[in-house]
């Protein structure tokens, strides 16, 4: 490749990135959906439904919430939070019909999956919200964090 071509390729790429970066930051400042870009987002900012491990444990001890495990049945069988029911996000349609009868709409549901690198709990929370459950929280750190802390498990 000729040096002239490389030079214009680099100049165009740098120009494009610089201009779009400036535009993005400007829009972000004035947008109602803009993010705080100078610090990490808090758990609550990421998703208002997220709860910490400690908050989840408090709910578990209070015994007022129903725990739902969004992972596949074979992972659920290997270990889960004590008292949790398995409702795999991937099989929501068929499995939900079976439990909808005894799952009260006004109950607070705590959903979780493996860890924060698992989006199944959020998918399950979305599906439950669509089904009319308004009190759904997500234990984002999931089963791995719960097990590491040695909290009640089955």
């Amino acid at each position: 490749m000729k040096p002239g071509v490389i030079k214009s390729l680099v100049a165009q790429t740098a120009g494009l990135l610089a201009a779009s970066t400036a535009l993005a930051l400007a829009v972000n400042v004035f947008s109602p959906a803009g993010l705080a870009v100078t610090r990490a987002l808090t758990l609550h900012e990421l998703d208002a439904r997220y709860v910490t491990a400690e908050e989840t444990k408090a709910r578990h001890e209070a015994g007022q919430s129903l725990f739902l495990d969004a992972r596949r049945p074979e992972l659920f069988a290997r270990g889960h939070i004590a008292g949790a029911q398995n409702l795999p996000a991937d099989e929501f349609g068929e499995r939900f019909t079976a439990i909808a009868g005894w799952l009260p709409k006004e109950a607070e549901l705590v959903v979780y999956c493996d860890s924060k690198s698992c989006s199944l709990s959020r998918q399950l929370a979305d599906k439950l919200a669509e089904a009319g459950y308004e009190r759904v929280v997500i234990f984002r750190d999931g089963w791995v964090a719960w097990k590491e802390r040695g909290w009640a498990a089955e």
């Binding site: 494009l16 990135l17 970066t21 535009l23 993005a24 993010l35 870009v37």
Partner: peptide, 11 residues
């Protein structure tokens, strides 16, 4: 994470 979420779509 926030700065990536803001910039990347505009790129």
């Amino acid at each position: 994470v926030p700065i990536i979420a803001v910039l990347l779509p505009w790129w």
